[in-house]
């Protein structure tokens, strides 16, 4: 579905929420807006207004629906996203508060979750306006500090106490990297893409060089500007809980350090001075950034990118999506493979 929300869908959402809030009446959705970016779930923002106890109420909500043909295929689960947000709701990490998850497609045609609409903006770091936004914020200093402090908060929260062990706890040693390799290999296998010798080289190298993990933390998996909501020069919410795992915090650090996530600037994620990031992250977490391990995870990210693009173009090729953006990603595969070859030194 594209464009504005249909009256029928709006009515079904109102009907659903009315059943969840039985003390309210006269429910209405206002300022309905579809978030147009992303390759994954369908996302709607709106304000719910209603009457309750003789008073007018208003609450900002975000609704995400899973059309079942997302780039991550079986690896993307709204239910897991909902559980993660529930676990994080009472931690120091800023995240949207989750309200409801429904698996039954009879309600809104597909599984969906409803969560808090957190105040803030999320400029794309790839566009001119977004780059200008982050450039200006970098000059003021508060947002870069918040970026690093929020990552440190994510890596130092007690995931056992938060109940996040359902994500799967890697065994000591190299199990974390091996799990990631296996996960992305499964996605590659599902894509139906023909064999790629550079990918075989990359996977073989990753398996032969998997680093042991010193400590296990919650890992976001895509911590960068564009996945972070910003309000008053601070991170108001960490978004996009689709790739999170329990694993090596250096996996996130490598992503922050990667030049994949900045464009035309030495600032990490278009925002943070590299030296400041090292200093502030290490001071806040007590961890030492391991550059060699980060280089390994950069190669792992190359494999992950190949898996994304093979999956995306495979969905189009198999007729599971009509989105021509997915067809176009067939040409992203060699570009990422070329990058992988450079990561391996050739």
């Amino acid at each position: 579905m594209t464009g504005p929300m249909s009256r029928k869908l709006e009515a079904r959402i109102v009907d659903y929420i009315a059943r969840r809030l039985p003390d309210g009446r006269d429910f209405q959705l206002q300022d309905v807006q579809r978030i147009a970016v992303g390759w994954s779930h369908e996302t709607w923002l709106f304000d719910l207004v209603w009457q309750e106890g003789g008073m007018a109420r208003r609450r900002g909500l975000c609704l995400r629906r899973d059309p079942g043909n997302t780039l991550l295929r079986h690896l993307s689960s709204l239910e897991q996203q909902f559980r993660v947000l529930q676990c994080l709701a009472d931690t120091a990490l800023p995240t949207p508060r989750p309200y409801w998850f429904e698996h039954d497609p009879a309600i809104l045609d597909m599984p969906f979750l409803v969560m808090e609409k957190v105040p803030g903006v999320c400029p794309s770091p790839w566009g001119r306006e977004g780059r200008a936004f982050y450039q200006a914020a970098a000059g003021r200093g508060a947002l870069p500090a918040s970026f690093t402090a929020t990552l440190a908060s994510l890596h130092t929260l007690d995931w056992r106490v938060a109940g996040l062990d359902f994500l799967g706890v890697p065994a000591p040693g190299t199990d974390f990297a091996r799990r990631e390799i296996a996960k992305w290999r499964a996605l590659i296998d599902l894509s139906g893409h023909p064999p790629e010798p550079i990918l075989t080289d990359l996977i073989s190298w990753l398996e032969a060089n998997a680093p042991p993990v010193e400590r296990l933390t919650l890992v976001h998996g895509a911590y960068r500007t564009g996945n972070l909501l910003i309000h008053d020069d601070r991170i108001s919410a960490v978004l996009d809980w689709e790739l999170q795992v329990l694993g090596d915090p250096m996996y996130d650090v490598a992503y922050v350090l990667s030049d994949l996530n900045r464009e035309g600037t030495p600032l990490l994620s278009n925002l943070v001075d590299r030296d400041d990031f090292y200093r502030d992250y290490e001071a806040a977490t007590g961890f030492t950034i391991d550059d060699a391990v980060c280089r390994y995870y950069n190669a792992l990210y190359a494999m992950r990118s190949v898996a994304f693009w093979m999956s995306a173009s495979g969905l189009y090729a198999a007729g599971q999506s009509d989105d021509i953006r997915l067809a176009r990603t067939a040409w992203s595969v060699p570009v990422v493979l070329e990058r992988a070859a450079r990561e391996l030194g050739y």
Partner: peptide, 8 residues
């Protein structure tokens, strides 16, 4: 891969 990137 250099040849393929020339196209891609």
């Amino acid at each position: 891969i250099d040849r393929r990137v020339e196209v891609a």
